[in-house]
Nucleic acid binder design. Structure first.
Lengths: 337, 337
DNA sequence: CGTTAGCACTCATCGGTTGCGAGTGCTAAC
DNA sequence: GTTAGCACTCGCAACCGATGAGTGCTAACG
């Protein structure tokens, strides 16, 4: 059996209807609502075929049918191919960002709020990070006699701060001198490069071993591809959808949203494509079986970039979400550059 | 009518039972489960009195009774007065913090996870902040030709970073010189003091007006008592409790948890007391009517401190929560000092 | 041979009824 | 003051039957 033009049109109608209503759609609905000049009996036969092909499923024998993940994939591919993405007024989104927002963190938090309230799904945004940040400056600030704070500033604007123990008898001025010395030695290096540079320096540093080991540990930690932290907006939105009226499922979703590693897995894009759509099983996570995630990346000056995404039920309003995501992404790029 | 010893014992039994079961408790339950040598009829009379006094309420005529907010307040006051707080093994909590956690943000996130998983309620933790932070260092890093990043480091370890526009023709070295100049002028000052210092400096800065105005705006923003950001753990835990099986209520709760301002209102403690317990209406927020929040503050070296708290249903396991909070608070103070 | 009308059948859902039982207030006796 | 007894209330769960949306199959039609 082959997927012909008519089957596809019917499938499309079913998906459209299901996205709007979330109730299994029957043959009569298609034949009446989406005037295609066919009787319900014919639709029935076609639907039976579509089920055999793996595009439709029946929750139970005497109910309509619902699209499978495979069907959504086909549907989405078709959308993208034909550029069938909603057009929304960018002004409408710009208006949300008019107030003066200075801190990056605030901008991102606000963007997550806007994104979630516009889509009615859950929004996730990662702070911009450079794939290979270069150290720009390293600063030590004494906090107490045994502790200091290390601040490493990179070209991507990432700031890594950590407390480390320091050796006895090091005063503020010495710390400042060391900061300048280390900045000179390390600036322009990536964390991986810095790590070996620090190890080379170790023997020369005499009584500052404890301090240096602290910095080394921080550099090592930073040199590993560290999962960025994510800002979430509208985590409760999922509760509005009937498929998540089950408390158990909703709780699983919320704990997923709170787990940084899981989010990282979802938001990760190896290739810097314009956007990614992952539908249900495509995420590779069993708890995402009936969810879909759409991500777009944004860039801020230089090569550092972040990701913003929307997580919603698998029957997501893809055209709308895609257009909103793209517009917010543009807005975010501008604001953070 | 007066609240006597026996009435109080009965009320206590009712509250205990209701906290455990969440179902309205009847006279028979009290007389049998909590052997107090009284028949259910007597209990019934006392319960009727307690209702008249405003400590009990009946969801409907033929059901048992549930404690009012007033009752919980009495109950909690009694607990505190008698020091009836659970004793938990601090080792058990320490074990959760054994791994090496360098970044403050990670420590807090982890603490929120531990706190929520131990209490089974929602945990909220604010990053430590000093009531009147003093500037330690100000650093400008050029990002592009028109933009620079300002990093202000305070004695509380707070780092305020923001992007500002800079005047044309300022290179990296000049920025560095300005950083040192400004650090010299501003270090040791609070943000409020810095604000006027900057305004004094303005006329002298010649062609760096744009830059200075950027810094001034940042200082002004920082000088206002800014609400700290909160880390939340276990936001979905609330869904486990029958009183929040209502989707509508759960969604309200989740959006509350996401709103920084609301959290700030809940976590705010004007006096630095050891802990605060706010029960239902005492929070002053209508959406918190049947929730309670317990907060404890923790201190990190110096005068900077943060708050950690637990939000749960009004029938919270107060003795358990209090002891866990105190232990985690101690742990957090140690880790961040 | 594809399309469609007709029909028997399935089964989730919804509204109504009923019985149960937990709980109450009241009264009268101890 | 305490308690046994009793009539009464009312939420809740279980049961039941009607409803209707939906299906698959068959036979007739163009």
């Amino acid at each position: 059996m082959i997927m012909d033009e008519r089957k596809f049109r019917i499938l499309q109608a079913i998906i459209n209807d299901y996205i709007l209503t979330a109730i299994p759609v029957g043959s009569r609905t298609i034949s009446k609502k989406y005037a295609m000049g066919l009787s319900s009996a014919t639709i029935r036969n076609e639907m039976s075929d579509l089920e055999e092909l793996g595009y439709l499923a029946q929750p139970h024998i005497s109910a309509g049918r619902i699209p499978s993940a495979k069907a959504y994939r086909l549907y989405v591919d078709q959308l993208l191919q034909n550029g069938m993405i909603d057009t929304i007024d960018p002004i409408q989104i710009q208006r949300h960002f008019e107030g003066r927002l200075h801190k990056m963190e605030d901008v991102i938090r606000h963007a997550a709020a806007v994104l979630s309230s516009m889509t009615h799904y859950t929004a996730v945004i990662s702070a911009p990070s450079s794939p290979e940040p270069h150290i720009k400056r390293l600063q030590l600030i004494s906090v107490s006699e045994q502790m200091a704070m290390v601040v490493i500033i990179t070209d991507a604007g990432i700031i890594r701060d950590a407390m480390i123990g320091i050796d006895e008898g090091i005063d503020n001025d010495t710390l400042y001198a060391i900061s300048n010395f280390l900045t000179e030695k390390l600036s322009g290096l990536t964390f991986v490069q810095a790590l070996s540079a620090i190890n080379d320096l170790l023997p020369k540093m005499g009584t500052k071993q404890k301090l240096m080991h602290g910095i080394e540990a921080l550099a090592r930690q930073s040199s590993q591809k560290t999962a960025p932290s994510y800002t979430v907006g509208g985590s409760g939105n999922i509760l509005s959808y009937p498929e998540y009226s089950d408390i158990e499922k909703a709780r699983d979703f919320l704990s997923l949203i709170e787990t940084n590693e899981k989010l990282a897995q979802l938001m990760m894009t190896n290739e810097p494509v314009s956007f990614t759509i992952r539908i249900g099983p495509e995420t590779g996570m069993p708890e995402m079986r009936d969810l879909a995630v759409v991500t777009v990346s944004y860039v801020t000056g230089g090569d550092s970039c972040g990701t913003l995404g929307v997580i919603g039920p698998i029957r997501m309003q893809y055209p709308k979400v895609l257009s909103i995501l793209q517009t917010v992404s543009k807005q975010l790029s501008e604001l953070l550059s």
